[in-house]
Design a protein around this nucleic acid. Structure first.
Lengths: 232, 232
DNA sequence: GAACCATCTTGAACACGTTCAAGTTCTGTC
DNA sequence: GACAGAACTTGAACGTGTTCAAGATGGTTC
């Protein structure tokens, strides 16, 4: 919904009203066909035909078939944020906030499970612009990490001072792990993923709270130091 | 009506002398070209030409280009096992065994880093036969899990009785995590991955040993129960 | 040897993602 | 209105993985 993103077309950067309309048309058609038939079974020719344009025209607006998915990321992230808002407003307990936000993320993803699984391979490639770790994905990624920062700041949880700054990114990583599990989850309605969240959140909660105990200080520091090392 | 289990097709277990020779030739050629040019830039036509056979012939022995990689798995796993043997013979401390085996795994993978990254996307797709979780990969997977069972059984570590049976698979999962990190690792010589291993192993060691403490019994049980739930 | 049949081999053909030189439409300027 | 250039659009053509009907090969049986 929010058109605040800077449009990056294949040819240039400037998006005029004329082109924007076609761009949106192609995008909507693509998203619809992806949902209907899956990613692999939707051909660029089909997208172009259904949208009533030439194949080459789709490539004028999108660098590749994969780049059509970039939009999916942005939308999903925005929806996740929206879906998480009530939880953030309502809950103050860390575990409740975390579980709520994680569930909201899966809620938003659920209608796209098949589609997501089929293009996941693309996102998984380290050099792909679609990788959640890539520079191109930094927008949605930063937004997502910000969401987990809110999970933390709005909660009453007391966290070890050294661990705290690292925690949002760690929680986002955990979310990536949940998404990874979800992609592979073949249980009906991805019920397992829900169980994973419900089972893992209390453990994370426990770990986070226990990080302040004097006895475990060395361990906490060990963890923080490892993170620092790995990050450079 | 009798055992007409014909099918040498690609599944390729019935190996007559005639066919096996061609199969090996194609395989060696493919592996060489993959290493030389990378996965994506090696075409099936190039493999066939270099091997001196027709394109279709390659497809007689291998279901797809991806399936050529299956062999890479099997070989890597076998090499891993071999490389890990000295460590298993020498060490009895759990942490030392685990670190040694993990490092051995990365040792074996190192020459293929570029190649591995380029086909990783393929392996990441849930429905791919190359997925480490797929039925087709069960051979190498079971072997790998067995390796981590040895890490445990040969060690002097005392582990919670309920956790113990789950541990080999968990350690293998951790190894998958390390490999995931390694694929994304752009540091020279993948030095970060080494740091990850050296940093994470003591933590795992600590966790495993601490699992027996009476105070933490509930947590351990919570973890074990979560694993059970997720596995069905 | 001849006939049979499973095994193996071939290469043209297909569908796909992608490119690009060539066209068309729009917008601003005089 | 005429012109220039940018923005947009086209569809044939390329290289790719993959398929398949047709043919070749070699062992087995009589």
């Amino acid at each position: 919904m929010t058109d605040q993103t800077v449009p990056t077309t294949a040819a240039g950067e400037a998006a005029t009203a004329r082109g924007e309309q076609t761009r949106q048309l192609i995008l909507e058609t693509a998203m619809r066909l992806f949902r209907e038939r899956g990613y692999a079974r939707t051909t660029m020719r089909a997208i172009a035909t259904e949208a009533g344009v030439a194949v080459g025209n789709a490539y004028y607006y999108f660098q590749s078939k994969e780049h059509l998915i970039q939009e999916f990321y942005a939308r999903t992230q925005a929806e996740h944020r929206t879906a998480a808002q009530p939880v953030l407003d309502r809950e103050s307990d860390f575990a409740a906030r975390l579980a709520g936000v994680l569930h909201a993320g899966i809620d938003v993803l659920t209608p796209s499970h098949e589609f997501a699984a089929s293009f996941f391979k693309t996102a998984a490639e380290p050099t792909s612009p679609l990788s959640p770790f890539s520079a191109e994905s930094s927008g949605p990624r930063e937004a997502a990490i910000g969401l987990y920062a809110e999970v933390l700041t709005g909660s009453t949880a007391k966290v070890d001072a050294e661990l705290r700054p690292q925690l949002p990114e760690l929680l986002w990583l955990a979310y990536m792990g949940v998404v990874l599990f979800w992609v592979y989850d073949r249980s009906p309605g991805q019920a397992r993923t829900r169980q994973l969240i419900d089972g893992a959140v209390p453990l994370v909660d426990r770990l986070v709270k226990v990080s302040r105990l004097r006895v475990l200080r060395p361990v906490t520091q060990q963890v923080v130091s490892l993170i620092h090392t790995l990050r450079h």
